[in-house]
Every structure is written in structure tokens, then in C-alpha cells.
């Protein structure tokens, strides 16, 4: 049926990854499912709630091992979130798992009222988020979720970049007494270099201290920024990369430092350019009177091009090549090229 998916990485990007010593890991989705199963085996109050989504959520083994800890609601996302809130209000540690596109659009009012406004500790898990579903089209893309949830009070909005961030975020969310939104895709992810340092809730993780270009990225676009930074460094452009798993609340100190110290800031996200990480950074920087050249790289406000996730990333410049070019163009505009 579907055309063979091209690699997320061009041969040049793969070569750059090798040069940087990056190791390929698992899909974040699978790390989420493994971590949740481990948590649930230790605590019978940990529940997965699914809307016919246990297969796409990689929760088959969970359902087989812990059938009493998975609550299936059928294809009914509004009910999924309402039921999750009811369970959460009775002391359950609930993970409501469904494709991000449906979960954060159809059930947005339930997330807003039943979870956030009522302050019930539910973790809303948007799987196969962003453009993970590729050529299945815009019905299946979630390019609005960060924007919509950023505008709702009382929810942490978290998009892990790699397996380590995913595992840490799931463990952190399970222990938190307030709402969390987690989103990730289903493609295998490189491990971020260890220089990024450990996950700390609400904090950005930084690779490098270069002052020409700061890449500020979230979720599964971070690795493409790492590759772009590697390429730029080899051209004598000094870079830093901020992985920002927690889009709300934002690590303002790290982003303001990037804006103050760097000639150019390039943000990247698998999301609409409206209302996501990029605009959050722009707002933060401007309101702190930090003036820097800024480009927001994401999915523009247009009918999204048809193609695999890799095609779409490349089409909109969410690739080593695209991000490198965006940074170079930005440096030219500020006259900071060497």
C-alpha cells in the first residue's frame, strides 16, 4: 500500500552522525511502552487507558502481562480522557494513550476541563505525533497540539527527543501530582550525545557553548539540529544545541542565555510554526528585550505536502541540510559570517 519510507537521514547526514559517534536507539514509543510496563509492574495503580490504540501504542505486552491495568474504551477519545480523569480522581496513576492528532483535537475540552482545570494527575500521551503518520495525511497529523496545550493552564507539555528523555519523562510524569502531556513519534531515534547532560524536569539540555548559532529544538527534531551543528562546526561556525523537551513551562534561563550570547537562534519543531516552541522563544526573547536574529523552522501554515515523515521533514527544512542552510542564511542577514 504505502510507498517505501525513505530514511530520515541523507547519506551525508548519516556520515555526520557517524562522525559525531551517534548511536541509533529505539522508537521513543517503544521506550515509553517498556517504561510504563515496568512502572505498572511495580505499582498496580498505574493504568494505561486506550482507545483501540494498544497496538499503535505498543501496549500489547502491557495488556497481556497486566490485563487488569489496561482500560480499553473503544474508539472514543472524549470518553478516553473523561474516563481517565475519573480514574485519576480515585487515586489511579493514569496514562491516557491515543494518537496525538485525535487526542488533542477531539478531546481537547476533556483535557482542558476534566484534567487541567480539575487538576487531576493524568498523563495524556499523544502517540505517533507530529507528522509520524506521513502520507496518511492531515487528518492524522498533530501540528496543533503544542500550541493548543500551551494555551491551557495547568499542564506540562513535554516532547522527548530521544530514548533517554522519553524514559525519564515517563517516570517523572508517573510520579507527578498534576497533568502532563507527552508526545512522541514512532520512528527509531538516535541517542543524543552524552554532553547534553542529564534530564531535569522543566530544564533544557545543552550541547556545546558556541556563540554563532544556537539551535533550540524540541522532540524528534533535536537530532537534526545536532547534525546541522556538527556540519556548521566543521565550517568554523560555533554552535550550541538546546534540547527543550519541556515546551511548557519553558526553561527561560537557557533560552535567554542563547539569545544574549549567540548571533543567531534557529528553532526547530515538528509542529506548526504558529504557537509552538519557536513562537514561545520569540515571545520570551522580545519581552526580555533580547534582540537576536531568529528563524522558526517547523511546518508552515499551508496544506502539508504529501509524503512520508522523512519527505515532510526534508520538504520543510527539518533536516541537517535544511537547518544548516537556515542558519547560514540567518548569519548572512546579521553580517556575522566569517
Amino acid at each position: 500500500m504505502s510507498a517505501p519510507a525513505p530514511s530520515m537521514f541523507t547519506p551525508a547526514a548519516l556520515a555526520q552522525a557517524e562522525r559525531l559517534g551517534l548511536r541509533m536507539g529505539w522508537p521513543n514509543l517503544e521506550v515509553f511502552a517498556d517504561t510504563l510496563l515496568e512502572l505498572a509492574e511495580r505499582d498496580r495503580n498505574v493504568l494505561a487507558v486506550t482507545s483501540d490504540s494498544r497496538g499503535s501504542g505498543k501496549l500489547g505486552p502491557f495488556g497481556q502481562k497486566l490485563p487488569r491495568q489496561i482500560v480499553e474504551v473503544g474508539i472514543a477519545e472524549q470518553n478516553l480522557v473523561g474516563v481517565a480523569a475519573g480514574l485519576g480522581s480515585c487515586g489511579k496513576r493514569v496514562f491516557a494513550v491515543s494518537p496525538g492528532c485525535f487526542l488533542t483535537a477531539r478531546a481537547l475540552e476533556q483535557i482542558k476541563n476534566d484534567v487541567c482545570y480539575s487538576n487531576i494527575p493524568v498523563t495524556v500521551v499523544g502517540i505517533s505525533a507530529g507528522v509520524s503518520y506521513g502520507a496518511l495525511g492531515s487528518t492524522h497529523h498533530s501540528l496543533h497540539d503544542l500550541a493548543a496545550l500551551r494555551a491551557i493552564h495547568n499542564i506540562h507539555v513535554v516532547a522527548p527527543a530521544d530514548n533517554g528523555e522519553t524514559r525519564a519523562a515517563v517516570e517523572w510524569a508517573a510520579a507527578l501530582d498534576s497533568p502532563v502531556y507527552l508526545r512522541f513519534g514512532k520512528a527509531p531515534q538516535y541517542h543524543l550525545p552524552e554532553q547534553f547532560g542529564p534530564w531535569r524536569p522543566g530544564r533544557a539540555r545543552q550541547w556545546g557553548t558556541g556563540c554563532d548559532v544556537a539551535f533550540v529544538a524540541t522532540g524528534e527534531t533535536v537530532i537534526h539540529c545536532v547534525l546541522a551543528a556538527g556540519q556548521l562546526e566543521s565550517q568554523g561556525v560555533s554552535c550550541r544545541v538546546l534540547s527543550v523537551p519541556t515546551v511548557k513551562p519553558l526553561d527561560t534561563a537557557a533560552i535567554l542565555a542563547a539569545g544574549r550570547e549567540c548571533a543567531a537562534v534557529v528553532t526547530a519543531e515538528e509542529h506548526s510554526i504558529h504557537g509552538g516552541l519557536g513562537e514561545a522563544c520569540a515571545s520570551l526573547l522580545m519581552q526580555a528585550s533580547v534582540s537576536c536574529a531568529l528563524r522558526i523552522i517547523g511546518i508552515p501554515d499551508e496544506e502539508t505536502v504529501t509524503g512520508s515523515q522523512a519527505d515532510i521533514f526534508r520538504h520543510y527544512g527539518l533536516s541537517m541540510e535544511g537547518l544548516t542552510a537556515a542558519a547560514q542564511r540567518l548569519l548572512v542577514t546579521v553580517g556575522a559570517t566569517r
Partner: peptide, 24 residues
């Protein structure tokens, strides 16, 4: 028990509460 007011929310929440009770 819960913040309500948007219609069509109480029954799903109550179902979740009842499932929790049944599990326990």
C-alpha cells in the same frame, strides 16, 4: 468532586470513577 460545566463530561468521569471502584 470535579470541575464541571461544559456539558457531556460528567458521565465519562463517573464511568472512570466506577471502573476505579471495580478495580479496587
Amino acid at each position: 468532586e470535579m470541575n464541571t460545566g461544559a456539558l457531556g463530561h460528567g458521565l465519562p468521569i463517573a464511568v472512570g470513577m466506577a471502573i476505579a471502584g471495580k478495580l479496587d
